[in-house]
């Protein structure tokens, strides 16, 4: 087997962070953050993979088949929910920023207060 899935997770994390740091648009920034967060899904699902394991759903497969770890899959579910709500909050803040300063470029928002 290989380390490729872990490398993919690391790459997604780095590339997303680079996007967040260099973003010129708050909506683009939210998408970049989603990419970073996707790396955690890849990592979680990779660490739970059992070689030749099936999905941990014992409908149609015998009860004692080798299956992958269900714990990390349940954690990924939580992760996705958190990702969705974080994006929703960032987009709401982006709307507010646009209303107050007329721009969605993080560098263009100069006067912070409150």
């Amino acid at each position: 087997m290989s380390y490729l899935p872990y490398a993919v997770a690391a790459w997604l994390c780095l590339v997303g962070l680079a996007g967040v740091a260099t973003s010129k648009n708050l909506i683009h920034l939210a998408v970049c953050l989603t990419v970073t967060q996707s790396s955690s899904y890849v990592l979680l699902l990779s660490v739970g993979y059992v070689e030749h394991g099936k999905a941990p759903i014992f409908k149609g497969i015998p009860l004692h088949s080798t299956a992958v770890d269900p714990v990390v899959q349940a954690l990924t579910l939580t992760d996705v929910v958190v990702s969705v709500v974080v994006v929703a909050l960032i987009l709401a803040l982006a709307l507010d920023a646009h209303r107050l300063s007329g721009t969605v470029d993080p560098d263009g928002i100069t006067d912070f207060s409150g």
Partner: peptide, 30 residues
């Protein structure tokens, strides 16, 4: 390495959730 899963919890849950809770989707049972 990828696929070399060691932790006990995944194996334990896959063994006990269906017999104890009758939920064939172990992820949702978890």
């Amino acid at each position: 390495e990828f696929g070399d899963y060691r932790g006990p919890y995944g194996y334990v849950l896959n063994q006990i959730v269906v017999p104890l809770r009758h939920s064939t989707n172990v992820v949702m049972g978890t």
